[in-house]
Simulated scan of single mutants.
Amino acid sequence: MTPDWTWHGGALEAAKRHFGTGDRPWLDLSTGINPHRWPGSDTIAIDWHRLPEREALADLEAAAAAHFGTAPHYVCAVPGSEIGLRLVGQIIGGSAHYVAPSYRTHGEIFAKMIPVGRSEAKDTEGTLLLANPNNPDGCLTDTGQLQARKGWLLVDEAFADCTRAISAAPKVSDDARLILFRSFGKFFGLAGVRLGFVVGPPVLLDPLRALLGAWPVSAAAIAIGTAAYRDRRWIEAMRAQLDHEAVTLDTVLLRHGLAATGDCPLFRLIETDNARGLFERLAHAAILTRPFADQPRWLRLGLPGSDEALARLAGALAHG
């Protein structure tokens, strides 16, 4: 199976080349990105002529901080949470443990990465990195128990927007050795904006800002992100909608003998002996899902996003 499909989701062009489904439109369920993007991005005027103003960046970080539940001086905007992860790894340095299985990039952040199971994490010393909710299985971790460890605790909260109560953002402080990573594009359905945030104490954010330089994110990211984070009505309505659509997806999967063994409002993880065959069957129907090279029985599916797309998935599952 080509690495393009097992490294990250979204390798749509590679799938088109390999499976050759002609002009048929593809349904991309491989990424875990909200299929319903925040609608305000189409109406915001972007000043492409000027460099982003420092005050506008501060306003974005304040809007994000209010959404996360922390103070603005603990929030630093970055051009995507993955870049934030990699830069923080450079700043802290040394080796680290990371909870596996998880987001594949986690194994590349530090000079030496040592995988541990979730039950072993609390007994490690030094830097520990995990995702909460976890990707790809959606498992939740009580990060409060892990803060008693010796060393930095790094928590990738890329999918935390779907359920506000799970975030550790209110626990970030000057004294806590706690760093969070937040993604804008997944929940707001605007991954192409390339916007993320590092949430942590100034002792970490000050050198991070020095690495990022004067204009860390684009004028478009600032304008769209600021407005989206302040759209409380849309955020609350979308959380409820995603929960409903995820349950509806569960019903379709169960109808075809596929129960979710891992879940998050933005995706479902199924486990089956024929995961590779199912991936290829769906791909021949121009439906891209997410397989895993190191877990051949796993397949992750994002939300279809419409009744038509859900019916298309159900039809492909039925004709196996």
Score class of each variant (00 low, 15 high):
residue 1 M to C: 06
residue 4 D to Y: 10
residue 11 A to M: 03
residue 17 R to Q: 15
residue 20 G to H: 11
residue 22 G to E: 10
residue 25 P to H: 11
residue 29 L to N: 04
residue 30 S to L: 09
residue 31 T to Y: 02
residue 33 I to T: 10
residue 33 I to W: 03
residue 33 I to Y: 02
residue 36 H to A: 09
residue 37 R to N: 14
residue 38 W to K: 01
residue 40 G to L: 10
residue 46 I to K: 11
residue 46 I to W: 14
residue 48 W to G: 07
residue 49 H to P: 01
residue 50 R to P: 00
residue 52 P to T: 08
residue 54 R to P: 13
residue 62 A to M: 07
residue 63 A to F: 06
residue 67 H to S: 00
residue 67 H to C: 00
residue 70 T to Q: 03
residue 71 A to R: 11
residue 71 A to S: 14
residue 73 H to G: 02
residue 74 Y to I: 05
residue 75 V to K: 01
residue 77 A to N: 11
residue 84 G to D: 09
residue 84 G to V: 11
residue 86 R to W: 08
residue 95 S to I: 04
residue 95 S to A: 14
residue 96 A to I: 05
residue 96 A to V: 11
residue 99 V to H: 05
residue 102 S to C: 12
residue 104 R to K: 13
residue 105 T to D: 01
residue 108 E to S: 03
residue 108 E to Q: 12
residue 112 K to D: 14
residue 113 M to N: 15
residue 114 I to P: 06
residue 117 G to W: 04
residue 119 S to Q: 15
residue 122 K to H: 15
residue 122 K to N: 06
residue 123 D to C: 04
residue 123 D to T: 14
residue 125 E to S: 09
residue 125 E to D: 11
residue 127 T to N: 04
residue 131 A to W: 07
residue 141 T to P: 04
residue 146 L to Q: 12
residue 150 K to V: 12
residue 151 G to M: 14
residue 157 E to F: 08
residue 158 A to N: 13
residue 166 I to A: 01
residue 167 S to H: 06
residue 169 A to H: 05
residue 170 P to K: 05
residue 171 K to W: 12
residue 173 S to G: 13
residue 173 S to V: 12
residue 179 I to E: 02
residue 183 S to C: 15
residue 185 G to H: 04
residue 186 K to E: 01
residue 190 L to D: 10
residue 196 G to V: 02
residue 197 F to L: 05
residue 198 V to R: 13
residue 202 P to N: 14
residue 206 D to M: 09
residue 212 L to V: 12
residue 217 V to D: 07
residue 219 A to G: 15
residue 226 T to I: 08
residue 230 R to K: 03
residue 231 D to C: 07
residue 231 D to F: 01
residue 231 D to V: 04
residue 232 R to G: 00
residue 234 W to A: 05
residue 236 E to H: 07
residue 236 E to I: 03
residue 238 M to Q: 15
residue 238 M to S: 08
residue 240 A to T: 15
residue 243 D to H: 15
residue 243 D to A: 15
residue 250 D to K: 09
residue 252 V to S: 00
residue 253 L to M: 14
residue 253 L to G: 09
residue 254 L to H: 10
residue 260 A to F: 14
residue 268 R to W: 14
residue 269 L to I: 01
residue 269 L to V: 04
residue 271 E to G: 06
residue 272 T to V: 12
residue 273 D to E: 15
residue 273 D to Y: 03
residue 274 N to L: 05
residue 274 N to V: 05
residue 275 A to D: 03
residue 275 A to P: 08
residue 277 G to F: 06
residue 279 F to L: 13
residue 286 A to V: 08
residue 287 I to E: 05
residue 288 L to S: 10
residue 294 D to H: 12
residue 296 P to G: 10
residue 298 W to M: 02
residue 300 R to G: 04
residue 301 L to C: 01
residue 302 G to C: 10
residue 303 L to I: 13
residue 307 D to G: 06
residue 311 A to V: 00
residue 314 A to M: 00
residue 315 G to D: 07
residue 316 A to Q: 03
residue 317 L to H: 04
